[in-house]
Design a protein around this nucleic acid. Sequence first.
DNA 1: AACGCCTACAACCGCTCTGGT
DNA 2: TACCAGAGCGGTTGTAGGCGT
Length: 342
Amino acid sequence: MRKPDHIGREKVCNNTNINNNNTKEMLKLRKGLWSPEEDEKLMNYMLRNGQGCWTDIARNAGLQRCGKSCRLRWINYLRPDLKRGAFSPQEEQLIIHLHSILGNRWSQIAARLPGRTDNEIKNFWNSTIKKRLKVNNISKSSPNHSKDNTSLDPCRDVMEGGMFMSMHDHDLMAICMESSLTSTTTTSSSSMHNSSMIMKDRDDHFGIFPPLLQNNITRDANAASSLFNVSPCIGEIGSRGDGYGDCGILEVPYMTGMESDNNKVASRVTDGDANTNNPTSYMFEKKSTNFNNHFNVDTDGKVKVEEVVGYENHWPGESLKMGEWDIEGLLANIPSLPYLDF
DNA sequence: AACGCCTACAACCGCTCTGGT
DNA sequence: TACCAGAGCGGTTGTAGGCGT
């Protein structure tokens, strides 16, 4: 990409961490691109001495760089365990998947992609994935497509456009699951491409959780099922008569606690319909004692969403922040993570 | 060939967090 | 408890190189 700045720019490093008494030293600190010589110095020092105080490393390695700059260079470029090159499709999907759960927590996402750095992932997201999703959304939002008045439904737009909206960081969340299928639909797996699982908070902020991408629906749905402690399925979601109905959205008023919350509705996509082996059926199971308040199980055993329900374990005004979630715990249980073949 | 626009990504910047005193 | 320094994080910027005209 950019050529190394061999000449070197000697500027004052604005690192606020630098002791103000070291003004003379600061004036010598270089900024900008690293030269091969600097890389070699830092690499050699790190391999000999290992990681320590970055300010000391910068000084002891004979680098006219601030510790912060050295740290960044090591982490993002020099580290021996870095995996160079383009992101594989698997990595890409995992990034999308994790981003739907973690948001812009690049370091946490990077921690689950061996050999990749947060900076790399962040750049990849901002330059490639974000744009691609935007393009997808625009192409799906053509006049012909949007003349359907249900397009006013943000959930539908988000899902059909394949666009990702960041999940609101706080408030209660509902989970929506979209399927272009109905119980009577017979489809190939390709018909599931636009299926998404949406999280919605009470302010109608939506976020996909997780995004169900082409050819990955089973995997992602399994991830979701793991997060929500899913048990065997008993029915297939149908539709309801309101704005969400056409796309078969399941709305669950509150999701929390993940493992022990009795008030959640399990959801899952299975490899086969319980009756028909339809490979693309959404299956739901009652996890709540209030299940029948929210869903009707008809004579065919099909589940229909009837109404939004109250709260068993959490009163309506109670808010929950993403930060309070046990993200580590959640991610530890995602069965789809091992699919990455590193 | 020259020019301009676009993209990818390295690096910077500013902020928060954390641990030590 | 307050303060400080270092580490770490996420957002943003700058620019080399690719690509189209």
